[in-house]
Write a protein that binds this DNA or RNA. Structure first.
Lengths: 181, 181
DNA sequence: CGCCGAGTTGAACTGAATCAAGAAACGTGG
DNA sequence: CCACGTTTCTTGATTCAGTTCAACTCGGCG
């Protein structure tokens, strides 16, 4: 899987071990992968489909993240810190995901030093991704961020309802509708 | 140091090793700790003083983070990913910082499995902190976030110029001035 | 004493939210 | 395969929060 390249490369042997301990699963649309208030014990890589993470604010739902092919998803901080999630994770369309299970991953880390190291590098990479996201949020207008989305992730634009994208960008659906003409 | 409690505890022996390989340093006000465009090879914990991280946008500077006692600071993603920083890090007042040097930290991680593990847990914690920050940004208004700052970090409010706090909250200095009466 | 940086205040302006209505697309069951 | 209902998207009118710009206050300090 391409994704492991990002985190600095595993030996073929350890890549095999890691791949052997994650599961590929298929989910129908609107499957809840993570409930609010529950501790997450799974995170995912998207092979196919789209997964959205969101929370409710004053009745409306606000999109926190949208994951498509090769993206990681799930309630990361709930998973890593084993604390209750404040977000809901749900498939938007029929999706095929690689599932990482918490206890299994932990025992890999305890047993295997190279995998533990990869876990550290992966988390570092995660920090960098989040910081980038934060920077984008502060630096660019909603319009610019919409154009970046259009540029970099056309599949998301095409397959996710406008309102969900709008709240992801931090604007209303009406404003996004106006932006795009 | 309290901070290590957060990351799940080291053995006394390893805590000693870690403490032995970081340096306590004092910096005058307005010292640049990190330049824009340079790869960061140091991160810090604040023992005393205040350190601000910011970038320039259309001539104005925008505060990205404000670190006071016991906070981590520095250009995290530049440090962890060893890529150029898009931000500047600067002391606001005279500050005493614990300095972590990149190569030194890496060799600790390579040599010592428990420290490498702590590094992984720390990065997980970092992801959680960033996610929380992002949640706050999406969930609360500037006014509410100002009140949280006032509640949780009065020292920052008292010692940092209003304009820097305003850009941290994502509003102008004038608006913040109005909020606070 | 007068300057300078920091903070406050006022007035006009602007971009986005809200409210409301209607059009288009979608899918589900008859 | 059509008809109906639901969801999604668009458009318009109004309102409102926050920005901008400009002037002014305040306190410290050479």
């Amino acid at each position: 899987m391409d994704i492991f390249k990002k985190i600095g490369g595993l030996s073929p042997e350890n890549e095999r071990i890691l791949l052997g301990s994650i599961k590929k699963k298929s989910f129908p649309p609107k499957t809840i992968l993570q409930k609010k208030g529950k501790v997450s014990n799974k995170i995912y890589i998207v092979e196919r489909g789209i997964v959205r993470t969101f929370y409710y604010k004053e009745g409306k739902d606000i999109t926190y993240s949208i994951a498509a092919q090769n993206d990681f998803t799930g309630s990361m901080s709930s998973f890593f810190m084993q604390k209750p999630s404040n977000k809901i994770v749900e498939t938007i369309e029929e999706s095929v995901l690689w599932e990482f299970e918490y206890n299994r991953l932990q025992s890999l880390f305890e047993m295997n030093q190279e995998l533990s190291r990869a876990g550290r590098l992966f988390a570092n990479y995660g920090i960098s991704v989040m910081e980038q996201r934060f920077d984008d949020m502060m630096f660019y207008s909603a319009k610019e961020r919409y154009e970046m989305l259009l540029q970099n992730r056309p599949k998301v634009i095409q397959n996710v309802p406008l309102g969900m994208i709008a709240s992801y960008l931090g604007i209303t659906q009406e404003t996004l509708s106006r932006i795009r003409k």
